[in-house]
């Protein structure tokens, strides 16, 4: 009887370990799979041709991804330029100035915003943004900005909360105004976390697919202004995956674009998570 229970306990432990390893290795598995599938196109054409040529003619076997890469950068850039000031200002307002009750009211709203599916943001973009700015990088950027705001602002508020109130008191007791205290002490102390939040938002914007796809126009050319249409990498994958099997190397090229997304996003995520873990740990030590 006792042996039975102990045995069960041990078997369960081993199963859990196995599942953990399996789940964690899925990250490596995806990475390996993407590399494996994108090798053919890398072997056929050089890296520089793939990344820096704008000749995209799958039927001729030309896979220059510059239009897609630059569209992705444009859209992400626009969204960050819009979202970051909004997030920093609101996060400071909500955590430093606003009454607790306002924070309690707005925090759920931010969380709800975070839970809204990508497609819905796309529909909203079609209804409200596209009629104003057309199918363009700007429309994509605006929709993306609204999508990443909740992610970024959430991290920022959490990080600003970790700044000890004694530090504020120290600055205030020297005769600094509240704003000076925020500017020179709170923001400075929270800066690594604020950056981590922005990078997290950046990586979210990078991979966002459906919403952008619906409003950005999907025209294969390098955009020259925010009013141009664009064709970001995720949209490329989503739009062409169905037909990729009929054209040689097409699937490999699409996998390469998935690989590019994967690598950038993993790097960004590791960077920001490590910062956030360190902040969390420091808070643990302090209190």
């Amino acid at each position: 009887m006792i042996f039975n229970r102990v045995l069960k306990d041990k078997i369960a432990g081993k199963t859990m370990l196995f599942l953990t390893i399996l789940a964690c290795s899925s990250l490596l598995l995806i990475f390996a799979g993407l590399i494996f599938k994108s090798l053919p196109v890398i072997e056929k054409s050089s890296f520089s041709e793939l990344l820096f040529s704008s000749k995209w003619h799958p039927l001729k076997g030309e896979f220059g991804m510059l239009p897609f890469i630059s569209s992705t950068l444009w859209v992400t850039g626009v969204s960050i330029i819009i979202a970051v000031p909004l997030c920093i200002l609101s996060a400071i307002y909500l955590s430093e100035y606003a009454h607790k009750r306002i924070l309690q009211l707005i925090f759920p709203i931010i969380d709800i915003l975070a839970g809204i599916p990508s497609v819905i943001f796309g529909v909203w973009g079609l209804i409200l943004i596209v009629p104003i700015f057309g199918y363009s990088i700007l429309s994509g950027g605006i929709v993306l900005a609204v999508m990443i705001v909740p992610v970024v602002i959430h991290v920022m508020i959490e990080v600003i909360k970790t700044v000890p109130s004694e530090l504020r008191d120290a600055s205030l007791s020297l005769g600094a105004t509240k704003w000076q205290t925020i500017k020179f002490v709170v923001v400075k102390k929270a800066l690594p976390g604020i950056i981590a939040g922005i990078v997290l938002g950046l990586s979210r914007a990078f991979g966002e697919t459906m919403a952008v796809l619906m409003v950005v126009g999907n025209v294969v050319k390098i955009p020259h202004s925010v009013m141009d249409a664009g064709y970001p990498l995720p949209a490329l994958i989503a739009n062409n995956y169905g037909e990729m099997m009929s054209i040689p190397m097409y699937d490999s090229a699409l996998m390469l674009s998935a690989l590019i997304l994967f690598i950038i996003i993993v790097v960004f995520n590791v960077f920001s998570r490590l910062i956030l873990i360190r902040i969390e740990r420091n808070v643990g030590y302090n209190s």
């Binding site: 530090l167 008191d169 120290a170 600055s171 205030l172 020297l174 600094a176 020179f184 400075k188």
Partner: peptide, 28 residues
């Protein structure tokens, strides 16, 4: 507040250099 200096339970140096910690008040 300028008329009063405060020492808290645990020291809370501002997130800046030793020099700037002292210069912070006068600069402000």
């Amino acid at each position: 507040r300028k008329k009063m200096g405060l020492l808290s339970q645990r020291p809370f140096p501002l997130p800046m250099s030793i020099y700037d910690n002292i210069a912070y008040g006068p600069k402000i």
